[in-house]
Design a protein around this nucleic acid. Structure first.
Lengths: 185, 185
DNA sequence: ACTTTGAAGCGAAATTATTCGCATTAAGGA
DNA sequence: TCCTTAATGCGAATAATTTCGCTTCAAAGT
């Protein structure tokens, strides 16, 4: 993702400051009116540095998003399939409705290099979810497939966020899980 | 959408030329490397005109997308619920996988004024789909709700297009329709 | 510690994007 | 047909973005 040859100390501090500035600015105004100049001022990092390290605003945002994605959101392990699914659904609903929800979508769309990173992240998440389903199977439950999970629960959560800009409540998220679990098998 | 006080003749020709140029350029390169200057050159319309009429590149693209959306894609009326649903699903799958599929998503995300336009379009489409479902009910079939249609069929189509950049085939679209029709009611 | 050198700071220069003023064209209505 | 004036064309002015050359700082290896 970022092959810095000298990743420690100052570079790390700069990176942190810049990321914080981006998230900060992004929570106030939308990413259409965001500029590298603003990020430079807010973070106290010189503009030329931003251009040298990230090249474009888009690449910087992608870096931030990837960072955020890779840090948070562990797949839950509550002991029951329904518990896991509900926890996960509610969490995704919250994430996607949050300030950087739109960025997830954007990051998935654009980009060249980032596309790869994003694919990697998706793969990783898919593997973890697969693990969740397999744990359920090991307990004797009969879980849905990963594809069904994505289509019946996750896709609608994103859809609502994108097209209706409406946060999906926990109750509605649970309805989706109900639907998934009542699928014929 | 565009309250032009003098919509005919030259203005219309300019608008058409510009829209064509945008679609043309967009089919070649992605919308990250698109600029108003390019559109001006390709269309033969002066750059200042583009700025005056559309203000920003984003607004122009939104205008193009809205135009495209409003023209095509009539809701099918095949005589059976399943026929209507399958035809519609296949059509959406094709649209969203096409060259300006990503733009639909983008248009839904950004924007201030456009948000309204988009909402209007969504409303309009929702009304037509609602009509489709009501026709089925009138025939004695027991159709799903509009919400179920959107969540079970449409949302997964968009999800696949956005996150996997993979066109959903007609067969898979039909699988989604099957799932919708086998929902408990 | 000391050295090497990648990364950051700084301001100016080059480039690109956006706006402005004015002249010209042609819609739309009388 | 003629008038009025919105819309466009045109080029210059202004503003913004992006790059450059150079200096300074400090990470990583010895």
């Amino acid at each position: 993702m970022e092959p810095a040859r000298r990743p420690g100390g100052r570079s790390a501090r700069v990176r942190t400051a810049v990321h914080e500035a981006v998230l900060d600015l992004l929570s106030k105004e939308d990413w259409g009116s965001l500029s590298l100049a603003q990020v430079a001022e807010r973070s106290g990092v010189h503009q030329a540095t931003l251009y040298r390290r990230w090249r474009t605003l888009g690449a910087l945002i992608d870096d931030v998003v990837t960072e955020q994605l890779s840090r948070g959101s562990p797949v839950p392990d509550t002991g029951t399939l329904r518990g896991d699914l509900e926890a996960y659904a509610v969490q995704v609903a919250a994430d996607v409705a949050g300030p950087l929800g739109p960025l997830y979508v954007r990051a998935a769309q654009v980009g060249t290099r980032v596309q790869d990173d994003n694919q990697l992240y998706m793969m990783d998440r898919a593997v973890r979810l697969q693990g969740m389903l397999e744990r359920a199977a090991a307990r004797g439950e009969s879980p849905p497939t990963l594809l069904e999970l994505m289509e019946v629960v996750i896709a609608p959560l994103y859809y609502h966020a994108i097209f209706f800009n409406r946060p999906v409540g926990a109750d509605h998220a649970r309805t989706l899980v109900d639907r998934l679990l009542s699928l014929p098998r």
